[in-house]
Each structure stands twice: as C-alpha cells, then as structure tokens.
Simulated scan of single mutants.
Amino acid sequence: MTDNDDFRLVIVTGMSGSGKTQACRNLEDLGYFCVDNLPPVFIPKFAELCQHSAGRVNKVVLVVDTRSREFFDTFVHVIRQMNEENKPFELLFMEASDEVIIRRYKETRRRHPMAPNSRITEGINMERERLAGVRNKATYIIDTSALLKSELKQKIIRLFGDDYNEQMNINVLSFGFKFGMPLDADIVLDVRFLPNPFYIEKLRHKSGAVPAVAEYIAKWPVTQQFMEKLDDLVNFLIPQYIKEGKSQLVIAIGCTGGMHRSVFIASHLFNLLKNRGYLANLEHRDLMKNDVAEHIQ
C-alpha cells in the first residue's frame, strides 16, 4: 500500500526521432510531471519519492532512451525488478519506420545519438537492436510513421488522459489599437469601421458594456450585417479548430481605444460562444486605460 493510490508512472522510451518529445509535451498538457533522459538505475527511487509526496506529484513521466549510453544497459533489469516487486508503471514505446526517421533527421540536421560520426542508417540499426528487449516488454507501442501531431495527441489522451477535459478554452479579448495589439492573439478583428459612440457626447464616457452604448452601436445596418457574418464565421471555425486538436484560442477584437466598439462586439461574441456550450472567457484589456469617468455601468 502506497501513500498515493492514484499514482501513475509512465516510462517513455523508443527510437530516436520517433516522436518521444511530442508525446511528452502531450503528457505534460495532461498534467504529468516529466523528467527527460533519466538513467534507468534511478527510476525505482525516483518513483518512490513521488509516491510519497502526499499527492503533490501523482502523475509522472520518465523518458529513458539510448542517450543515457552505458546506463541504458540496466533498463531491462530495472523493468524486470519493478515487475517482480509489483511496482506500478506503464511502458510506452515510440517507434517509426527507417524512412521516416531518416527524413526527420535530415530535416533537423541533427546527428543520430547512436552514430554521431556515421550514417544515420547505421545509428538506426544499432538502436533497434539495442531496444529490442525493451520493446518486447512495452505496455503500449505507438508507431508515428503516418501520424499527424493531432492524431498522436488523441492517442496519448485516450491512453493516459483519465480526467482530461477535451473542451478547447476560448479567450475573447477586447483591446485598443492605440495601446498595441495583443501578442498572443490567434484571430484579430478590427472593428474600427463601426459607428463610434465616442463622438456622441452623452455616450463618450460610457463603455460598450453600457446598454445605451450597446444600443447605439447595434442599431446601424453595418453593425447588424457584420455581427451576422461574424456569427457564421465563428460557428464554422470553432469546430474546425477543435477537430485539429487546438487546446486554446484567443480571439482579439480591436477598436481605437478599446472602450466602445471592441467591448460591445467582444461581449456579443462571448455570449454567443457561451450559448453554444463552449468554454469561453471574456477580458477587456484596455478598458481601464481610458481616462474617462464611467467605464462600466
């Protein structure tokens, strides 16, 4: 009996160039604590320390491969010992065809760790031979030869994402161009073509969240036509991004000062997304930067 019965240890190994790094990034997104290139001899002790961390570290990924050189020879022995002592772990073996691995190394212009001064094919052959015993003991084997990154992510989620929330997080952000564009925006919409309440004295010092300002912006035909086309665009795009495997999306709506038009359109878009059941957040980045008396009412 351990101090943490929910503890999950995943050991990732396999061929160099097979996608171990990408798999680990996906596992990190699932909340796993990842340690790369750990000598196998340290696995049992490290796992024991994590198990007795009072739940602070209950999902761990250890990457072990031939980069650990002479230390790697103890890997099979360590796995066998952990099995004999009934220590829980899962072994994920990543592989790909020779042709794909060669192409990936050619693209990155990196040397193969098993043959840094020889041909890549020699390194692949040596590594396959050295990994044969480990592959036979794998809990899961993933061949990435024909996988897209999004497809690999879905495989990782199915295998290791026990409590994973697949909903994409959508952040709707209003901003003012005079304060600079948001650097993390995926989609930027410029709404400075809409009628501007700034030129209406009684509306100038009120934000786009105020009903009177919202009514003024919304009453114009150009606004109504734009909102209709925006709704159609969003209804089309969001499912495509989700299908592609995107986990976060930032939609930025900009006007001159980030107080009237962008706030109104961003609020409209946020409500649309919420009504469609998406996980959405709303932020008015520059609203309080405007030197006015009434920001939100």
Rank of each mutant, 00 (worst) to 15 (best):
E129C: 05
E90I: 09
D65Q: 11
E90D: 11
M288P: 01
N271V: 05
T121F: 13
G123K: 06
L49H: 06
N171R: 15
N281V: 07
L189W: 09
E166T: 14
K219L: 07
V234D: 12
F93K: 02
H268Q: 05
L183F: 13
L233T: 13
M114W: 09
S145I: 14
M15A: 11
V213D: 11
I242Y: 15
Y140C: 00
N171L: 15
N4S: 15
E151G: 01
N275H: 06
D162L: 10
I296G: 01
K202N: 12
V10C: 11
G180A: 12
N271L: 11
A54M: 12
S53R: 11
F7K: 06
R261N: 04
G19W: 03
F89N: 04
D184F: 01
N58D: 15
N4G: 12
N275S: 01
F177I: 02
E215N: 12
M1D: 07
V35H: 09
A185L: 08
A132W: 01
T21W: 04
T21N: 11
G277Y: 10
I265N: 04
E107W: 01
G17F: 13
N169Q: 10
G123M: 04
T144S: 07
G258N: 05
H268I: 00
D98G: 14
Q297W: 00
